[in-house]
């Protein structure tokens, strides 16, 4: 099903559940399977919490524009904010093989986004803000969708 839905939320942690509800309902409407929907919800939480904590660090009245776009091939999420430049695509992956004592607790969120989504891209538009685009393919033979 092709559709688009765009909602703007205040960039507050207490709105993560409302953003999740939007993403879950639109992903279901797009016809994604349960595993893909859960993956998109996790990626969304990680993306929005990063925007709130990093892009809007020191900024109280920011917003996150959540755009959900569906077509026959893919489900696309576009998150727009007007905070500081925070390109999560450049964050290095954590070491997942270290022992418990050496295991770092950070860096997992961005790693999750990259693992769970089929495409991740970031753009900073000077004077406007950040645009993070996450894509999940709908095709059943997509390698990531089937795992």
């Amino acid at each position: 099903m092709s559709f688009k839905k765009v909602v703007v939320f205040p960039a507050k942690l207490e709105n993560l559940a409302a953003i999740d509800a939007l993403i879950k309902s639109t992903a279901e409407l797009a016809g994604l399977d349960a595993r893909s929907i859960y993956a998109i919800r996790v990626a969304t939480e990680e993306a929005c919490s990063n925007i709130i904590r990093h892009a809007y660090q020191g900024i109280e009245d920011g917003t996150i524009e959540c755009g959900c776009y569906s077509n026959m091939d893919s489900f696309t999420l576009v998150f727009r904010d007007s905070g500081h430049v925070f390109d999560l695509t450049g964050v290095p992956s954590p070491d997942l093989d270290s022992c418990l004592e050496d295991r770092k607790a950070g860096g997992l969120g961005v790693y999750f986004i990259k693992q769970l989504m089929d495409e991740v891209s970031f753009e900073h538009i000077p004077g406007t803000g950040n645009v993070l685009t996450l894509v999940k393919y709908l095709t059943p033979d997509s390698e990531k969708s089937s795992t």
Binding site: R41, E46, S49, L100, G106
Partner: peptide, 18 residues
């Protein structure tokens, strides 16, 4: 539902316990 924020709490608690 659990995100990386929840998983970070688990790993930190496991370290303290051990």
């Amino acid at each position: 539902f659990i995100s990386s924020a929840g998983l970070r709490i688990l790993i930190n608690a496991q370290k303290k316990c051990k």
